[in-house]
Design a protein around this nucleic acid. Structure first.
Lengths: 148, 148
DNA sequence: ATCTAGTTGCAAATCGGTCGCATCTGGTAC
DNA sequence: GTACCAGATGCGACCGATTTGCAACTAGAT
């Protein structure tokens, strides 16, 4: 178990191979960007970064690939409280769900892992007899700095 | 305390009056629709229903009014996991925050109030020194019926 | 090397939401 | 009640995000 918090680099491609998903030049570029991204990317940023690896990558291919990865449950789609425009942000789904907090003043995005969140999801599954596939908790407010 | 779970009908207009918000024919129609809606409405549905009360209501007025109510903290904006399209849904903000669950198969939307959710928000405020203004927990999965 | 189902780039279309502007109106002041 | 004006409206054009139709291309099985 070399990397506890995150997944192995290259792991998205491995998942796709396991599931018999055809690997193209363009998808390789997009997956590499997703794997190495340090922050949440929207579709436009993802496109720009992917085109640096393979200039032929088209906008529609980015969207099609995002849809594919979403369907496979390999990435999560976020709004981040629509701090900038109406678009979406994407991140690899890791082992542990986390909460996203967006500061309404400085725009900073924070993440937080909580056992209480896990407990809450457990309660929903049990009390509502609801089988959870994906969950998203986003919070808007003011970070420590901006609250002052 | 006549109505425990929900607010008094007509209450949105009362709030607006208290805050010195100008009340127009069109806003009255839109607020009335929001107040009497039995389910979550998107902007297009809200427009159609409001036009039945006042045919002059325009699409842009609906959006402008929604923005106003959002800024005033009188309504919440939801995605409902984008079950139908990319748009947003709206609901009056009630006393108690609640979780939204969307069944990925039948499309049913369920709501759930939980003390654990309140506890989780408390933890975020304390541990992250983050002042919460708005929070949204949406869950996608399969309801009891569709899990079978 | 061949074949084909699946993928791509491109351009046009769609969709949810916003904006500029001339006109209208709610509600206060007289 | 009338006049007034800041703020609200309808209209149509616009915008950014995402999707689609289609002909050309390619990964990977045979």
């Amino acid at each position: 178990m070399p990397l506890p918090q995150t997944e192995m680099p290259g792991r998205l491609q491995a998942y796709c191979a396991e599931r018999g998903i055809r690997m193209t030049q363009q998808r390789r570029a997009i997956l590499r960007v997703m794997e190495t991204a340090s922050k949440h990317l929207d579709a436009a940023q993802l496109l720009r970064k992917a085109q640096k690896l393979d200039a032929s990558v088209d906008r529609s291919t980015v969207y099609r690939t995002l849809r594919l990865l979403k369907r496979q449950g390999l990435i999560d789609e976020l709004d981040l409280m629509h701090i900038h425009g109406e678009g979406h942000y994407y991140e690899r789904k890791l082992n542990r769900d986390h909460i996203h907090m967006a500061c309404l003043r400085c725009g900073k995005i924070m993440e937080f892992v909580s056992d209480i969140f896990e407990k809450l999801k457990g309660q929903v599954e049990k009390d509502c007899r609801f089988r959870i596939v994906v969950s998203r908790l986003e919070i808007g407010g003011y970070c420590a700095n901006c609250s002052k």
